[in-house]
């Protein structure tokens, strides 16, 4: 409904005001993006409600499960302690293995991704090459890390190699995307100037691209290290490379010792929090710089 309001004063002003059915002034216009946001939110809620209604609870009842859950949480977070079966030194060794899987996976992934990113970046590469690399990456990304590891563990034999390669594969899909977007943000003039001075492609890469976005690349890699650490916990156990995830399975599933699980959880939490803080500092530094 449209209503014309005429204000009379020294000069005449005409304002068209849209009103709704009850005559109130419309304060919100339902544009296309707002409408689709609503459609999306309502569909997500509908799926969630459907999922809850049809949820399979198995033999579990909340009356039994919730008290044991809170009792377990109490043992894990408030009474963490090691049993006689596990020594601190052994636990630290296992943590080092998991850490190593994550670090090696990130380092190798970073190098491989850098070269893929050069091929994927629109300002350095041919459009067709860029599209092909992007398609390959979305294929690689679609396969969960744990499945890469299981497959490579069978093909290569059990050990740290399969675990690292599995972590690398999931990582390069993520890092290639992040790196190539960083490279695309480089000032066009820099590349142009080098090209004009007759620099070769590799000179452009190592004299302009790498130095100007090294900090950003390191920051992205660190973010990936956080994720890779989480993967390494699961993957080390699955690939037979050992690590803290394997100990977690032993203490939890085999011995059912929640106090020991607590120690492991605190160790994992400690490492991740350190990663996160470093990553945050790196990003702050990056923001100041730009």
């Amino acid at each position: 409904m449209n209503q014309a309001i005429t204000l009379k004063g020294t000069s005449q002003v005409a304002i068209r005001v849209q009103t709704n059915k009850s005559g109130k002034i419309k304060v919100r216009k339902l544009d296309k993006s707002r409408m689709w946001t609503r459609v999306l939110i309502y569909s997500l809620i509908a799926i969630t409600v459907y999922a809850f209604v049809t949820m399979n609870f198995g033999t579990m009842t909340l009356e039994v499960a919730l008290p044991t859950f809170f009792a377990n949480l109490q043992r894990i977070f408030l009474q963490p302690r090691l049993s006689h079966r596990v020594e601190w030194a052994a636990l630290i060794d296992q943590l080092t293995i998991t850490l190593g899987l994550a670090v090696l996976g990130t380092l190798i992934g970073a190098v491989v991704s850098f070269f893929f990113a050069l091929l994927a970046a629109r300002n350095l590469s041919h459009p067709k090459v860029s599209q092909t690399v992007r398609a390959i990456m979305s294929f690689i990304r679609a396969i969960p890390a744990i499945l890469w590891v299981l497959i490579f563990a069978l093909a290569m034999g059990l050990g740290s190699e399969a675990a690292v390669v599995g972590i690398v594969f999931q990582g390069i899909a993520f890092l290639t995307k992040a790196y190539s977007e960083t490279i695309e943000e480089i000032d066009h003039g820099v590349i142009e100037a080098l090209k004009a001075s007759g620099a070769t492609w590799w000179q452009i890469v190592f004299q302009a691209v790498l130095p100007s976005c090294l900090t950003a690349l390191i920051s992205w890699s660190f973010l990936r290290l956080e994720t890779n650490f989480g993967h390494a916990v699961a993957v080390g156990a699955a690939a037979g490379a050992g690590g803290i995830g394997f100990q977690l399975m032993l203490s939890g599933n085999m011995q059912m010792d929640m106090h020991e699980v607590g120690v492991i959880v605190y160790l994992l939490l400690g490492v991740s929090v350190v990663f996160e803080l470093v990553s945050m500092k790196l990003r702050e530094k990056l923001l100041v710089k730009s």
Binding site: M60, A234, M256
Partner: peptide, 17 residues
């Protein structure tokens, strides 16, 4: 910061499969 696998294990003890 508690890895997903740790959450899954912790929950598994009380909520089962």
């Amino acid at each position: 910061n508690i890895p997903l696998i740790a959450w899954a294990l912790i929950l598994l003890f009380s909520f089962r499969q």
